[in-house]
Design a binder for these strands. Structure first.
Lengths: 267, 267
DNA sequence: TATTGTAAGTTTGTCGACAATCTGATTATC
DNA sequence: GATAATCAGATTGTCGACAAACTTACAATA
């Protein structure tokens, strides 16, 4: 039939001869796993949900075999638990989990920021543009009081950090951590909340990166994550709050309003 | 038959009434996954090995169903790859993987050291004892020129760090990273090598922790991991080598020979 | 009345089988 | 002689089925 990907003989003429990205077909297990992740993230499978394999397999239009394989993968990611003889259950995050997830993110994300700042200028500009686009999404969502959209843009903002951070493994880990973050929200609250502080905080993130100030970015991220833990655990504003206000009030080294980042409107 | 675990009614009299640890039975999938991990770590399944499902299932004494589920879990951990219609293959680490794994460890392990130093004194002493025991294992292995035993003790040393580091997630991640480290060795060399620098380096790790010097521990770990990358990639000794020698020669703040840590001989 | 023993029903865990797909080699053709 | 087409073999991906195990409800007993 078609020539194999290794050859491409006789097709010289276009550019990038011989360097096609290998075609990657997703297996059924991949598809099921991805669908389950989506369901966990968008809340259609809240934490604690217990599901029977047969019923779920029927809904997904597959048989129990591939579904069970996908379950194992989600279990390894920490999103599902498989109680013996009880099907599967969406993991419920405890207070300890909330602290652990956010502490871990506080270790990872500042480092990602530092790595992004070492990127060559054109790529760095791309990252800033993507981050700016997500911030704009957050702003639009906030204007509409759409907590769901705000949360989604939040996740995507941090996913951008993960993707550009440079480490395959770290990107995967942070990707899972972000889903777990969403699980934390669902585990602690009944419904989404519109969280107004989120937007200025993320504007400050982008500004710090645009100003090439990795340490300020790191500090802002840490403060944000500590605040998130307090909010999720409904703890009174601790000593960190004053620190947050100070950092946000402080003029960054090189003031640069978000408009000057000329974000691509299309995204 | 037996009373359910939630009740335990009528058995007051012993101590710790009503607080038994839940019994944890491993599922078949758990068993298979663990067996496969062992095989990867001990080298009976070298990187690049391709296996047929039927043959492997027969060897393990299970049917293909549970085996395929375990495969998915190992895939999520990054130890296996599943080429389409080609069974399973043990992941082969590239030079980029070597750098990535060690870079990531360099981010994680110093932090674990810091956390261990914040532990209450009795637990901290336990950690130091366990670490010291692993170092002794390393010394014995080196004396016998047993590269395999040396490598195993090395892994267990760092596993101790992971377990006591305080974060469930981080422990799991580092556990996987350590297996990947072993895969790096197998991917780069044909056989184990006796690596003499390993023991003094780890003695220094323990000494730094015993001296309550988290920053020195962090620096030593980073230097060690950078050296490992160079060794694995067979690069000439870079600018970091001088730094390593300087750190190892330098007298720690509070000199404390390993003997004074009174290690439990039993381990 | 509280607790234990019993039994039915449901769901999982595991296995065997079938078909689609891919690989590798062989043959035919330019 | 090299390339393309064909074909047989083997293996995976998926499904259906069976038996074991667990849960829940109910009844019996102290």
């Amino acid at each position: 039939m078609a020539t194999r990907s290794s050859g491409l003989s006789g097709l010289e003429g276009g550019r990038q001869v011989g360097r096609l990205a290998p075609v990657r077909r997703a297996s059924t297990v991949d598809l099921i796993a991805e669908r389950l992740r989506e369901a966990v993230v968008d809340g259609s499978l809240p934490p604690g949900t217990v599901l029977g394999e047969a019923e779920l397999a029927y809904q997904l239009g597959v048989s129990r075999g591939p579904l069970r394989e996908a379950m194992q993968r989600l279990t390894a990611e920490g999103l599902l638990v498989i109680p013996r003889r009880r099907g599967l259950a969406v993991r419920t995050m405890t207070a300890d989990d909330v602290r652990d997830v956010h502490w871990l993110r506080a270790q990872i994300e500042p480092e990602l920021g530092r790595r992004i700042l070492t990127l060559p200028a054109p790529e760095r500009r791309t990252v800033l543009a993507e981050l700016g686009a997500e911030v704009k999404r957050m702003q639009r969502a906030l204007k509409k009081d759409d907590a769901r959209a705000l949360g989604d843009a939040y996740l995507d903002f941090h996913r951008v950090l993960a993707v550009w951070g440079g480490s395959m493994r770290l990107a995967r880990m942070l990707g899972t951590l972000l889903i777990e973050t969403r699980l934390c929200t669902f585990s602690m609250f009944e419904h989404f909340e519109v969280h107004r502080d989120l937007v200025p905080e993320h504007v400050a993130f982008v500004e710090a990166l645009a100003a090439d100030d990795g340490e300020r970015f790191a500090a802002l991220v840490r403060v944000h994550l500590e605040a998130e833990v307090r909010r999720l655990l409904a703890e009174p504003e601790g000593p960190g709050k004053g620190e947050a206000d100070r950092l946000l009030a402080e003029t960054p080294d090189e003031p640069q309003p978000l408009d000057r980042l000329d974000l691509p409107e299309g995204l």
